[in-house]
Design a protein around this nucleic acid. Structure first.
Lengths: 338, 338
DNA sequence: CTGAGTTATCAATACGATTTGATAAGGGCC
DNA sequence: GGCCCTTATCAAATCGTATTGATAACTCAG
């Protein structure tokens, strides 16, 4: 910056004013031009460390992910977060932590960076609540698809609206005329599982189907569980015309099981998934009707709330709508069938 | 730090020496203890910006990923990278860029941070070569599973050994007695596809199978391509006893197709995948024998080479072994069958 | 012509650490 | 005792920027 000042024949102070586009300080147009030219010629780039040291204003956002590696989804959250950070002139620092265990040191490292806030992102609502490191005590934190172990009611949490998502999924089959529907669900008791089930019940009520007539079986969100539960249904003599699966992997399991049973999808049975998992849902045969989770938007809104004072997420839970995607795995039943 | 010095009754200089564990400067044990105690009491944490400004030593590594969001693999690279960075006291800054298009500004941002080096990570060798931003000119860069568009021969590149991986995959079926093997391959001409094919030919030679007797068909690494190519094989009257698929998604396509054809896996046909894709390979029925890619190690070694001067990746290509995983989708043929 | 207000610029300081060069005290040797 | 070497400590300079308070030149109303 001193070099630029010298080349432009002004003081370093003035250069700083120009570089920061300070509206409250007038700089002659000619001077401004000379400075910008000099900066350009010298390829001047600001020294972030110096900026930060002097201004004390944070310029980076910490993203703490639980299991980015194991999930095809966490990445979307990170992308949304990055966009929001970038829009506000922030940069992102990423730390991945195991689902349990504190990684205290990593977090401390992050905080030392002079962070403007932290996004704590999980790819799913399962697993234990987040043990928040003490090092984050003075730092604004937003939780995405997870809750802190302590003070969850005072935390800012952003969540997909799994309930309305479940409703969306169920409507896909109900509106196609199906009435005998099975729910091949994920892990029993897990937040998302319960919410999706509630949504399914909502949708059933809309078409005057009694919730008790819905056959629900719980597994663990894996492909093999989807397959086994489906086989189990048939072995018990149940013959639903449609299956709503807990997620796309389970839906794949359903597909495999139905194949084994000599049934076709959607000819004999319709199947709906959940997640709109990349490289999976759209590629299966038939392509899977499913409900996508709004990870990108969750990441975006969470971080925007950290960097943009005109935009604040409220304390408590904020829900973001899921994104239903209609594809080929649902067949409309002929009217006579109903 | 000044506070710590005051509380401990020493100069700030001495505190700095203790905090940095400087071996070349002797500090009395008692003094050291007093300082550490004071630091602990005050909850002292160093100001990274100040450290960096003064020392001019970089403390962060930039990770540029192409498409972290869309891939279940990139995450592993990031994890390995993070471990290596952390081990050397570095922290990671992450930027995701679209596969084509420069994201110049994001990269400039990264470099301004005072970066110690950059890892350019792609989840697959496909796509166009990386257009490296000019802003990275003075920065040491390592490429993982991709090459720079310019000066590729002078770049440091770390790659999975897809050829030996292909060999591993093929050996799984050859050593189980299969001789009539089809290769349901990925995108034609793509680096990985070619290398895997070469490996397959290597393995064929080992058991004296002529490469011309291998039936190879190219698709695009998608599940639906795997399915269509498999159906096509059978429609043309081919009856291989084993299929080596270009990746796990294609292997899944094979499974689906074989189901449709009324065949069982591995009873009638054995299938081998590639990637050991999380949530997929191990969950299918039968669980998929496959070959994992060493993403974690690639990330680790790449970044270690940036932060640890005792460990340097050579200029040019470095290959890391793939990780064969034997599961249930391959059946050993009875000896009489051969 | 004067004083106040505006415009354009700068000198000096502070941010919190690292690093350099200096100083003082103690020990060993002749 | 004088000299040198080692040990233990510190004062001061420095990194590159943002910020504050001052200054000089100019404008304009009275």
């Amino acid at each position: 910056m001193t070099d630029v000042a010298e080349l432009a024949g002004v003081s370093q102070t003035t250069v700083s004013f120009v570089m920061n586009d300070r509206a409250d300080i007038p700089v002659a147009a000619a001077t401004r031009r000379r400075i910008l030219e000099a900066a350009d010629r010298l390829g001047y780039r600001p020294n972030r460390a110096a900026q930060q040291l002097r201004s004390q204003r944070p310029a980076t956002i910490g993203i703490v992910t639980r299991g980015i590696a194991s999930s095809p989804f966490a990445g979307q959250t990170v992308l949304g977060a990055q966009r929001a950070a970038h829009d506000a002139g922030f940069v992102c620092m990423l730390v991945d932590v195991p689902e349990s265990g504190s990684s205290d040191e990593e977090i401390a490292n992050l905080v030392d960076q002079g962070i403007g806030g932290v996004l704590y992102a999980s790819p799913r609502a399962g697993g234990p609540p987040v043990e928040v490191s003490r090092h984050l005590d003075g730092t604004r934190t937003v939780f995405s698809y997870c809750w802190p172990a302590e003070g969850a009611n005072r935390a800012t949490v952003i969540l997909p609206d799994d309930r309305s998502g479940g409703r969306d999924a169920a409507r896909m089959v109900f509106s196609a005329g199906h009435r005998d529907v099975a729910f091949v669900a994920g892990t029993f008791g897990e937040w998302s599982t319960t919410r999706r089930w509630e949504g399914l019940v909502d949708a059933a009520a809309e078409v005057e189907v009694d919730a008790d007539d819905l056959d629900v079986r719980y597994g663990d969100y894996s492909t093999s569980a989807g397959r086994l539960l489906t086989l189990q249904l048939w072995h018990e003599g149940r013959r639903p015309t449609a299956i709503v699966a807990g997620n796309d992997r389970m839906a794949l399991g359903c597909l495999l099981a139905l194949h084994e049973l000599g049934l076709t999808v959607p000819g004999d049975v319709s199947v709906v998934g959940f997640d709109d998992q990349e490289y999976l849902a759209s590629e299966l045969t038939p392509s899977l009707s499913t409900v996508g989770l709004p990870f990108w938007e969750m990441g975006y809104r969470a971080v925007r709330s950290l960097v943009d004072s005109n935009y604040r997420l409220p304390v408590g839970e904020t829900f973001v709508d899921c994104i239903p995607v209609s594809r080929d795995s649902v067949r409309r039943l002929p009217a006579s069938h109903i």
